[in-house]
């Protein structure tokens, strides 16, 4: 190798090593402080019991609380994650289906849901429940 070629290869080696080394450090800092269970696994685990209740195909509605809906990015992410957890059931981001799965972060009573026309089918805790839409098919 000529001195110029050596210098060129050394340059690439040096910058590559610094770049990936810095990234390694960032990731390893995060890695040691990471939660025991990652966010996606934690969120989707809430929906595991729902899956066993649902059939192998079909469409289900989705309802979240207004506080969550205000944070658009998080609300979208949580809706996508609910779909990710419940596949192959198709989840639509609307309560206008016969059955509706919830993702509540604040306390919601079955009474208030009943007032809106939703009858509890089963509650799974952590804001997750399946309701039957009493108004479904009336229009």
């Amino acid at each position: 190798m000529t001195p110029r070629s050596v210098a060129a290869a050394l340059l690439v080696a040096f910058v590559s090593l610094l770049s990936i080394g810095r990234f390694f450090q960032q990731i390893s800092d995060f890695f040691v402080k990471r939660p025991a269970i990652d966010g996606v696994t934690q969120f989707t685990a809430r929906y595991q019991p729902v899956r066993s209740l649902l059939p192998d195909k079909g469409v289900i509605g989705y309802m979240t609380d207004p506080a969550a809906a205000a944070d658009e990015v998080n609300a979208t992410a949580e809706f996508y994650l609910a779909q990710y957890a419940l596949a192959p059931i198709v989840v639509v981001n609307s309560p206008n289906q016969r059955y509706v799965v919830t993702n509540f972060h604040v306390m919601v009573t079955t009474g208030s849901m009943a007032d809106q026309g939703y009858k509890l089918v089963r509650e799974f805790g952590n804001g997750v429940a399946v309701f039957e839409n009493q108004k479904w098919g009336q229009k």
Binding site: I20, I27, S28, R34, D38, V40
Partner: peptide, 15 residues
């Protein structure tokens, strides 16, 4: 280092 880094990423965020 790249391999170790990507392994840490997928262990921390498997999805």
């Amino acid at each position: 280092i790249a391999l170790a880094t990507v392994l840490m990423i997928v262990v921390a965020s498997p999805h």
